[in-house]
Design a binder for these strands. Structure first.
Lengths: 198, 198, 198, 198
DNA sequence: CATGAATGAGGTTTCATTCAT
DNA sequence: TATGAATGAAACCTCATTCAT
């Protein structure tokens, strides 16, 4: 059952170190020691430290992009689709909490081209999310008095913030938290929100 | 108690560079060049690069702490107090957008003691915010079916996320954005939120 | 005794790369990529990078040594022999311009023993050349007021320098240049040179 | 009598090491050890190893450029001017034999821009030299049946080649060698060269 | 108060070569 | 014969900080 190729063990070690110490403060030396490989082996698979960082981004972007597509393609009604998407993003983000920490904290350490690549893919993701909201607005179930960009940011801010306060070791289960945050978001998104009835 | 111009210009230069390039990627040399002072002068006022980073945190923490106290002390009704606090935090955060960027991105670069200090003061801030919500819950105007910690995180996530998407150069004014985000939050916080009426 | 195509293509690629980028700046990886073979294959035929460099020297030293012997053995009169030798060395050097560039620029990168070997063979070559001049001096057709070592150096400096300025793509043909340089040399070598008649 | 600034001692050590071992094979560590300074101090004055190499070129180019101008400006008759120039270049090159070795052997290790700069200044130098020959040709004292570019190369090849065979420790004095080589060159350059009288 | 030369530890990366397959 | 993953030593360079002036 050989499973720990050099690539995997290096990436794993890197994520953990980057998440706890930060990208810049983590030396390649520390990474290869933690991964139990030599520096040369690491550089055989990753062209640079930057490459390694990007590989972490790649993985997460691809994963979340695929899951979003799957849910959207399943053809559920709008409100069920959005709820499923929200819950899924939050749960996935909790599953990849260290990756998320690195993601939001170290984007600016990537090379310029790669920052662009990441931005492009994030934008695509947000656009798809935004389209679901737009559909709901046309159906009259979501409020339209707030710019869609603000609504989208309002949701992703929660996802972003997870790694700052949530701990899987804490009292709340992943599913519960996902449901609670999703409820809060959908409540504020509703065409029927309290402020709208004033 | 006159402010030395060296201190100010160095801090200003540092904030801008840290926000655009990141703390680790910015050299002391770059800072002093941008500030138009010499290295010796800088080290006369700041014991270390870490010191300089902390000074930025200090300023923001103190400012926001003071403003929170002022509003709470003004004796308004609960709901008006919370609304005022939310709007103020968002507006202040927009006024200090680069500082915010640095704040959230580079906490882990501070020395351990200083990270503790920052955490301590942030926690105090969140606790004060939480107390207002607790008051509203006792008064029956805020929902109580979601842990207060989640409600607090739900709000501060928006503050945190501002520097990731909001640009003062964009179409939306500071005041409008603050009102919109506050509305979204208060709608979801309401004891009368849609989901609660199901 | 068939030549392996690997050997040839590697040597060819190496000469070109060494000539354009320098020996030290060219990696084995670059060579094998340019040659379209794998590293393992290369190391099957050449024990080391040094080996490869020496093979280039070998080829040129052998070639020029053989041609010199042939001309000398042909039994022409002294002056015709020397002219033929000069023209031939220059033309051969032009045919092997990249090899020459590498030759003169990278001798010091060879292992000590191999540097000795190269020096030994170059000395032999210069000695043979010097003998022709000596014969002419005894016959009274070449000047003897300048040490023979200086005369020899005076000629080979031109050969050496070719790769620094001559381009086969330029306006002058190989034969013409060879004739011109030979003329200049033989004019200065003549017992009848202008300065000698002063 | 403080004389050995960091700059000077580093440059001196570098020239010697580059001349004996080659640029690529000499480590910065070796240089600073030989110079008796720390790496940090060296990098305070030289931005890179390349910078250090270029400083050596700069010095030689400037020196020889200035001397050429001085002689040309002195207003001597053409033939005396050319003789003086030739002798001077050779003698200077002997004074700076290690620099010369480095010069011709390691030009290709400089950054592209700097190679251009060196080429530009060398071309200027050769052009000035060529102008003197042109003047002599118009006066009818120098042959015109060989392209001037070839005549110029014929002379500088000797200068170039000096470091390959001449040793100041050998039997021939600097002045004698300079005179002998100059004579050979001027003899071949003469409108009255033997081959021309055939 | 201010300077800026000097320190020295540590960082990322390259690369010729080996060796199990 | 040929592969290419892996080695490990050494290379160049950066930078926060100190200190004599």
């Amino acid at each position: 059952m050989k499973n720990s190729s050099v690539q995997d063990s290096v990436k794993k070690a890197a994520v953990d170190l980057f998440a706890t110490q930060g990208y810049a403060t983590t030396s390649v030396q520390q990474i290869v020691e933690a991964a139990g490989v030599t520096k040369g082996a690491m550089y055989h698979y990753f062209r640079s430290k930057d490459d390694l960082l990007f590989a972490i981004y790649e993985q997460l972007l691809t994963l979340q992009g695929e899951r979003l597509s799957q849910i959207v393609d399943s053809g559920l009604p709008t409100q069920e689709t959005l709820r499923a998407v929200c819950v899924d993003v939050i749960e996935t983000s909790i599953d990849y909490l260290p990756e998320g920490t690195v993601f939001f904290r170290s984007v600016h350490m990537l090379s310029d081209e790669r920052q662009e690549e990441v931005k492009r893919r994030r934008r695509k993701y947000h656009d798809d999310f935004s389209s679901i909201i737009e559909r709901g607005q046309r159906e009259g179930v979501y409020r339209a008095d707030v710019p869609r960009a603000v609504l989208v940011a309002h949701f992703f801010s929660d996802v972003h913030y997870l790694s700052h306060w949530y701990s899987p070791a804490g009292p709340e289960s992943k599913g519960k938290i996902a449901a609670q945050i999703t409820d809060l978001f959908l409540d504020s998104l509703s065409a029927d929100a309290p402020a709208r009835r004033r």
